[in-house]
């Protein structure tokens, strides 16, 4: 059981190619990290997997437990078990957080089946408590007026409530101070299990001090160019990304 990305080529609709033959396999129960310099295509990768309409896949497949999800709409991909924690969570005025998550849960039920409101709120409050999100946030509009840390905690809350099979966390550390980062990381770690595969996308090694990955990949120029254990993140932290680029140039000319 895994999320397999096979030879993925994708571009901005009618524009420049961003992913150039990307291959990756995320097994259930494992945490993979993707690191890479700015502009390497990290965030685009997450949007393409989730089905953002600004991008088009020109070749390749994304197999979720064996099924190619690329023909599916973004909502069908999510119901198939995919979750994307946004780098910049979107504000939805006038829609309460509780109703939003409830609609997402309801969408996973069969036609005519109704969510049990008491169970739902019980579960919601439990997850909110463990993420230190005040109860008042159920009635607030989705992400509206939330601080950076509150938005990211809200993403992790949604992940907890939707129990995906595969979760992509896009720059979940960006805009967080160290205290917020610890809470968010603890929330993510609490969800690590044999039932979920995670892909953590980050520019900095800092996040990986708190969410220890099993595998680290380096993305440069729309391709995975290095794959190793967690020690690779430390190497990147101390040496930067240039040595990888130099390595790549050498091997290309060799």
């Amino acid at each position: 059981m895994s999320l397999v990305i096979q030879n993925l080529h994708a571009r901005v609709v009618g524009g420049q190619e961003i992913l150039r033959g990307l291959n990756l396999e995320i097994e259930k129960g494992r945490v993979h990290a993707i690191m890479g310099p700015n502009g390497s295509g990290k965030s685009t990768l997450s949007k393409i997997i989730a089905g953002h309409p600004d991008y088009e896949v020109t070749s390749g497949e994304v197999l979720l437990d064996g099924t190619n999800i690329l023909p599916l709409s973004p909502d069908a991909r999510a119901r198939a078990g995919l979750f994307l924690a946004f780098q910049y969570p979107v504000e939805i005025p006038g829609v309460s957080n509780a109703n939003f998550i409830r609609a997402a849960r309801q969408a996973r039920l069969a036609e005519g089946e109704e969510l049990d409101a008491v169970d739902y709120y019980g579960e919601l409050y439990k997850e909110m408590d463990s993420l230190e999100i005040p109860r008042s946030f159920t009635a607030r509009s989705v992400n509206e007026g939330f601080s950076g840390g509150e938005k990211k905690r809200n993403e992790v809350l949604q992940m907890a409530m939707l129990q995906p099979s595969y979760a992509i966390l896009d720059e979940t550390d960006s805009g967080l101070d160290i205290d917020a980062l610890k809470i968010v990381a603890a929330g993510v770690n609490a969800q690590r299990s044999s039932n979920v595969g995670m892909l953590v996308i980050t520019h900095y090694q800092r996040l990986l001090d708190y969410i220890t990955p099993d595998v680290v990949h380096v993305l440069v120029g729309g391709r995975i160019v290095r794959t190793a254990g967690p020690e690779l993140a430390h190497e990147l932290e101390s040496k930067g990304y240039d040595w990888i680029r130099e390595d790549l140039a050498e091997s290309a000319s060799a």
Partner: peptide
């Protein structure tokens, strides 16, 4: 897109956003 990425079908998302 944000709503759809949570599994909410487009039609429901439209209605929810309009409600909001």
């Amino acid at each position: 897109f944000y709503m759809q990425s949570r599994g909410i079908p487009a039609r429901d998302a439209y209605r929810l956003i309009t409600f909001g």
